[in-house]
Nucleic acid binder design. Structure first.
Lengths: 154, 154
DNA sequence: ATAACTGATACTATATTGGTATCAATTAAA
DNA sequence: TTTAATTGATACCAATATAGTATCAGTTAT
C-alpha cells in the first residue's frame, strides 16, 4: 500500500527546491535535472500547484516558478488532496453498504477516527518542516553536507 | 486517496460475518448473497485468507469457511498487508533518490514515523473490535437493531 | 449418483499511475 | 527584431492495479 504516489512525491521535492530558494524563479528544467524528475511530468505538477495557489510562475526567458507563501502553510495533506484526492479510508463500503439506508453508520466513528489521525499526521508535515529537517541534517552530519547541499542548492 | 480497496473492504466484511458465527462453517455463496459481495471475487479473497491462516475451510456439501482464531488477533493492518501490500509512505523516493548512496536518509525518520502511526492506528482496529462495535450499536440504537441483526446473522 | 461445496487459475474490462509529445504564447536579451 | 528560453494547455501512450467473471477439477454429505 503506497501512501504517496509519484505525483505527490515529486511535488514535495519540487516544493522543497522552491522553498530552499524562496523568492527567486526556478525553471522546470532546472528542478527536473537537479532532482531527477521527468521534465514534462514535473511541468504538469507545477501547473497544478499554480492552479491551487501554492506557487507562482513567470513566462519567458529567466522565467520559472517561485514560492511566495510560507512553506509552513503547505502540508503533505494538502498535496495528497491535490494529487491523490481527499484521504478517505473506504470508498465507502461501510458507509454505503453495511449502513444501507441508515443515516448514521455504526462503523462510521471508527473509520472517521482513523481518517482524522492519518490526516492530522500528514498535516504536521509541512514543506517548512521538511526543509528544516534537511538543514538540520546538514549541520549534524557534516560528512554528507555536500550531498544535501546539492539537493537544496543545485 | 483510498486507504482501503475493495479487496480489503470485502475481506473485512467477510471476516465480520465469520467472526459473528465463529465455529461454524459459512459458505462463500451465503456470505456473498448476505453481504452483497461478488461471489467469485469473494472466493478468491477467502482462499487468500486461508493461505494466510486467518480462516479454515471444509470442502463439499455443508462445507464452507470458518474462523477458528481469536478475532481480536486479526487487525486491519494485516488485511491491508495481504491485499494491498505493506504500508509504506513512499515507494520510495526519499529513501532512494534524495538519499542517493547515503545509508541513512534525512527524511527517513519523518517518513518512518508516519508509517508507524498509520500502521499502529490500523492495528488497533481488529475484527473483534469491529464486531463489538456492531453489537454495541445494536443495543444502543434498538431502532436499527433489525438491520444490524441482518448483517451479523443472515 | 448427485448436488453443494472448495481449489486453482485463466480471463476481461476499467481506472489509475507514470510518463511523453506537441504547439502556442510570452519574454529577456543578443 | 529575431531568437532562445521559458510557461500554458492539452492530447496521447504504456504499464500497472483494481474489480469482476468464468471454468473446470476435486471433495463430501445425503
Amino acid at each position: 500500500m503506497k501512501v504517496l504516489t509519484k505525483n505527490t512525491d515529486y511535488a514535495i521535492r519540487a516544493l522543497l527546491a522552491l522553498a530552499a530558494r524562496k523568492g527567486s524563479y526556478l525553471s522546470a528544467k532546472c528542478i527536473s535535472t537537479e532532482h531527477d524528475i521527468p521534465y514534462q511530468f514535473l511541468r504538469r505538477l507545477l501547473q497544478e500547484m499554480i492552479r491551487h495557489g501554492l506557487i507562482v510562475s513567470k513566462e519567458g526567458v529567466k522565467g520559472g516558478f517561485m514560492m511566495e507563501m510560507d512553506p509552513d502553510t503547505i502540508s503533505v495533506t494538502q498535496l495528497i488532496e491535490i494529487f491523490q484526492g481527499k484521504v478517505q479510508v473506504s470508498e465507502c463500503m461501510f458507509r454505503k453498504q453495511i449502513c444501507g439506508n441508515r443515516s448514521r453508520c455504526v462503523l462510521r466513528h471508527e473509520i472517521m477516527r482513523i481518517e482524522q489521525v492519518v490526516q492530522s499526521e500528514f498535516e504536521k508535515v509541512t514543506i517548512g518542516k521538511l526543509l528544516r529537517d534537511l538543514a538540520e541534517a546538514n549541520q549534524v552530519i557534516p560528512k554528507t553536507a555536500k550531498i544535501e547541499q546539492a539537493v537544496l542548492n543545485p
